[in-house]
């Protein structure tokens, strides 16, 4: 690692002050599971590393039917929290798929969102949930929709002096859910990930459906067409397959050195159908 100064603010205001001072010469350290490798390889050479782990951003709260998750909530907390299991179990299922157990010890929700890996699980989940990110800067506070936050591979709307402090979403207790992914190896980054949430009305028809993909574009993809295709319909195998096909057809995933875009697209369709089927089965169990 290149030499840098280390700062450990104890309050958000202190952290923002430091960010305001150093701007893009600073890097914010949360769980460090993406940042430290980048520093090791000298791909980033910040003058200052601002370690925000001392900030009080680690709470999981429910208020007015909305679930709030602090930026410093660790992946293992998502896996183990009773509140998450009751209010938004899809987060727990997604967290279990992230990295290895050591990554899940330290990695944070805020870190994953800001790192913005297009194949990562949490950005896709937040996109599906239509979550809102709470963002703070020296000049104020704002919220940003997850569906707008990600702007490209490893890039977001965040400016150099901003910090994500938390993320807020609907509690989706009544929804069935599923995260399906295919990776090159157990625990590895997803080639394609699909997040599906489905709620059913009293007649067993789809009341709401939310679907997002990871790994199929330069950022998470909200599959709005699936939702339109399902809403109000009976979720038969054919209907789900058709919806998944619709989603698949709208994708144009890139190729890389390991996997072709054509294959990603194909897998996205298969996994979307499976995720929808599993989510529907769970939704039936919940009604």
């Amino acid at each position: 690692m290149h030499p840098f100064e280390y700062a450990a603010p104890e309050t958000l205001d202190q952290a923002l002050g430091l960010l305001g001072e150093h701007g893009d010469e600073a890097k914010v350290l949360a769980g460090g599971q993406s940042l430290i490798p980048i520093l090791h390889y000298r791909l980033a050479r910040p003058r200052v590393v601002i370690d925000i782990n001392g900030l009080l951003l680690g709470d999981i709260v429910v208020e007015n039917g909305r679930l709030g998750v602090g930026a410093l909530v660790r992946y293992h907390q998502l896996e183990e929290s009773d509140v998450i299991a009751r209010r938004c179990p899809v987060l727990g299922e997604a967290a279990r798929l992230i990295g290895n157990v050591r990554v899940r010890t330290l990695g944070t929700v805020g870190g994953s969102l800001v790192h913005a890996d297009p194949a990562a699980e949490l950005p896709a989940v937040m996109t599906a949930l239509d979550a809102r990110l709470a963002v703070a800067s020296p000049s104020g506070r704002r919220t940003v929709a997850a569906r707008e936050f990600f702007t490209g591979p490893l890039t977001t709307m965040l400016t150099a002096d901003e910090i994500v402090t938390g993320v807020e979403m609907d509690a989706v207790s009544s929804y069935g859910w599923a995260v399906e992914e295919l990776s090159r190896r157990a625990g590895d980054f997803a080639v394609v990930a699909v997040v599906a949430l489905v709620s059913l009305d009293r007649r067993g028809r789809v009341d709401d459906a939310r679907v997002a993909f990871g790994g199929v574009a330069d950022r998470p993809v909200w599959a709005r067409a699936v939702e339109d295709a399902l809403r109000g319909r009976e979720p038969t195998a054919d209907v789900l397959a058709h919806a998944a096909q619709t989603a698949r057809d709208a994708l144009e995933p890139p190729s890389d050195a390991f996997v072709s875009g054509a294959y990603r697209r194909h897998v996205a369709g298969v996994l979307c159908r499976r995720a929808l089927a599993r989510a529907v089965a769970r939704a039936l169990g919940r009604t």
Binding site: Y6, L29, G32, Q33, H40, T105
Partner: peptide, 18 residues
């Protein structure tokens, strides 16, 4: 093990151990 949980010690800054 950091507070009983496994971590990669290569990805933890010593200064931040608290």
């Amino acid at each position: 093990l950091l507070d009983g949980r496994p971590v990669s010690s290569c990805l933890v800054l010593a200064a931040g151990l608290r």
